[in-house]
Nucleic acid binder design. Sequence first.
DNA 1: AGCGCATGTTTCGCATAGTGAAACAAAGGC
DNA 2: GCCTTTGTTTCACTATGCGAAACATGCGCT
Lengths: 255, 255
Amino acid sequence: MAVLGKALAIVESLVDGATLGVSELSDRTGASKASVFRILATLERRGYVAKDPVSRKYRPGPRLLAVACGLVSGHDLVQGARPVLAALHAEFDETVNLGILSEGQVLYLDILERSHGLRMAARVGSRHPLHSTALGKAILAWLPADEARRLLPEGRFERRTPRSVTAWPSLERQLAAFRKQGYAVDDEENEAGVRCVGAPILDVRGRPVATVSVAGPASRLRDATIRRIGRRLVDAASEIAERMGYRGRGGASVS
Amino acid sequence: MAVLGKALAIVESLVDGATLGVSELSDRTGASKASVFRILATLERRGYVAKDPVSRKYRPGPRLLAVACGLVSGHDLVQGARPVLAALHAEFDETVNLGILSEGQVLYLDILERSHGLRMAARVGSRHPLHSTALGKAILAWLPADEARRLLPEGRFERRTPRSVTAWPSLERQLAAFRKQGYAVDDEENEAGVRCVGAPILDVRGRPVATVSVAGPASRLRDATIRRIGRRLVDAASEIAERMGYRGRGGASVS
DNA sequence: AGCGCATGTTTCGCATAGTGAAACAAAGGC
DNA sequence: GCCTTTGTTTCACTATGCGAAACATGCGCT
């Protein structure tokens, strides 16, 4: 399946919006120039990439955009979670996030930002570490401990801020506490000044398939608020799970 | 480039969120079951599709989601247009759309909905006809007439509502008028009860690369309002064009 | 239960699609 | 104008991917 792998590598290289030429792509993907050229020609014929006629560099094409958009907004999770996220957003007027596990990181699938004032949102499509975000911790906490451990890097974890938890034993204790209370907290561990509360969305077998979180400035999200949001998130998460046909009961059921 | 074509067809089949099995995919794509199976295995190994272990059906995988999300939100147009769209949204409190031309249709790239009340938004990733939407007409109007004609279906166009324009001669007259006034209008032609105003975003050579539009219920969008929004949209469009480095002058420059 | 159909998985020998190296053509940069 | 870099094409080779058909597995039906 050589072509496929190369084609995927090429498309991935074009994801960030940069326009790249044949040689550049050949370097990045390791495929021979000839291969890259042929693959690009095919992709171009199908509208997946577009060639700038003057610079002869390539960028994502309209077809690829269409597929990508459809994929994201058509994803039943995004669809089903939207109204619930909107409700949370209206209720707390803070940034609301929806994420899933994607190769050892949290992928932000949907974000409802505060309409005004400070923005503290990650970008849709961006990925963040599991150990430093409420979204990530909510997933880790509801996974068997050994599985959680394997998802994390070996040794110490990245210190994103002074408050980041960087060792497994302390993280593991946190996760246990989160599992008991039904929601996870990130206390300025991913970004200085930002606190975040997250609850897992569990599937029929009680496995965490996604997470919802509410994020805001530490100044506004005092401990009492966090608790209030946390309790609300547990309901919200189980409501999403219900809508998706996963199960009726949310966070509490596994503890 | 046989594999690639088949793989793309497979991925496209999975776009709408349905989970499909090997045979179903084999039918839809025309590829032999063996091919589909092998391709799916490769895609699965790379995380592009995920197999439900119990039903043995496939759905989009986390990696694919990540790439798709990155592609959409990383697209410089979406990035650059966001703030301008947000301003429009705040100003008129109606649904604001961003679209591009995608294979003879308008692809909705970004949508800011009204926060409350009636929703009338298309979905991000959905595609609509060019002849019946303000987004589409704005593109058509700023294209050379013959090029516009070629983008449209031969013969008569789909009658989406009683007010849809279905013949080229009358559409062509509309387009000329739109070009003069700087913005295009859809008067309940795509969806009954919904009016929409759109302006083209032009690149350096004056070609329409994208469009912005504001949509709302006909009851709220009277003619005077439409004119006001239209004029504002021309500015907004040229501001987006500027941010993207396309050009300083917006709609008026081509007329 | 038991049969049968539909679907997923594997094997196999063959032909072609895809391979990299290298030659060739354009296109800037100094 | 030369020289470097990048895009495009050619070519002979072979591994890659091909479809048919056999095999396995699960599910519904009577």
